[in-house]
């Protein structure tokens, strides 16, 4: 018969099983937690600071689009034309991050951008 303390230990062991299982079977660097690997087709500089772009490119694109569509201020490098020029394949760049974080921008329904 298990004592009360013994049953608590068994309960905790079962509760923590997934954690230990993961630790033993894959270690910490499982593919699910690895950083997305980006392919930079044309090394150099992005249109803005890299760290800033990582955080703010979605806001920037919306800003550029309001300017272009509503006011007719066309930007070559800060709009999709620019992104495509330097990051030609969505599959190797944009989507690697987006799949990782689970966002699905609906822009490609209308905008041409090769997978």
């Amino acid at each position: 018969m298990l004592t009360r303390a013994g049953s608590v230990v068994v309960f905790l062991a079962v509760l923590a099983f997934p954690f230990f299982y993961n630790l033993v079977s894959t270690g910490y660097s499982s593919s699910a937690t690895a950083q997305p690997q980006l392919k930079i087709a044309k090394p150099g500089k992005c249109v803005e600071d890299t760290a800033w772009m990582r955080k703010n490119h979605m806001k920037m694109l919306i800003h550029v689009r309001e300017k272009a569509v509503r006011e007719g201020v066309r930007s070559v490098d800060h709009s999709f034309h620019g992104c495509i020029n330097c990051h030609p394949k969505r599959e190797e760049f944009c989507n690697r991050c987006h799949d990782y974080v689970g966002v699905k921008p609906e822009c490609w329904n209308c905008h041409h951008y090769d997978l």
Partner: peptide, 21 residues
């Protein structure tokens, strides 16, 4: 020129992208 998506309305825009260039 971007294409279209089900569920929007569209019409002639005087080829605004051409006018702008």
């Amino acid at each position: 020129v971007p294409v279209r998506m089900h569920g929007v309305v569209e019409k002639c825009n005087f080829c605004v992208h051409r006018i702008d260039s």
